[in-house]
């Protein structure tokens, strides 16, 4: 407990900033921006967990022993998952922006509290 990781805590604060934006803002574009910040924080947290101190990148160089490489490189699985997550995030943002543009064409505003048909 004496060496509570500061980086983990900061990533979680970033996630909380995004959460506040999603709940409390009423501009549609601001909500999309907050969701992007949350996604950034989660990707960062996954990469932080896979870090090894004084490690090397998981790309082998010619003439390197496999066992020596395996004892030095950082986590490759976390990086692969984060690449997939980033590209999926881009396509989902495109879909969200398309919906926001359609809503703007219909209501002439980005204000979500003025969109009467969306009220439950």
């Amino acid at each position: 407990m004496n060496n509570m990781p500061l980086a983990y805590g900061l990533a979680m604060i970033l996630f909380a900033v995004g959460l506040y934006g999603v709940v409390c803002k009423k501009n549609a574009v601001k909500i999309i921006i907050s969701l992007l910040i949350m996604e950034n924080a989660v990707n960062l947290f996954i990469l932080l967990i896979g870090y090894r101190k004084d490690g090397i990148a998981p790309v082998m160089v010619k003439g390197q022993e496999a066992s020596e490489f395996a004892s030095m490189a950082v986590d490759p699985l976390a990086q692969a998952i984060v690449i997939t997550s980033i590209v999926i995030g881009l396509s989902i943002v495109a879909l969200m922006i398309a919906i926001a543009i359609r809503l703007y064409d219909r209501y002439k505003t980005f204000d979500t509290s003025k969109m009467k048909d969306l009220k439950g």
């Binding site: 509570m4 983990y8 932080l48 090894r52 101190k53 998981p58 699985l77």
Partner: peptide
């Protein structure tokens, strides 16, 4: 967060997760 290990100690990070990663490496 309290139960997480120290930052920068990858193979001990989470026992069930780190096994396939070490296999891949």
């Amino acid at each position: 967060l309290i139960s997480l290990p120290v930052f920068g100690s990858f193979p001990e990070t989470a026992v069930s997760v780190a096994v396939p990663s070490e296999w891949y490496l």
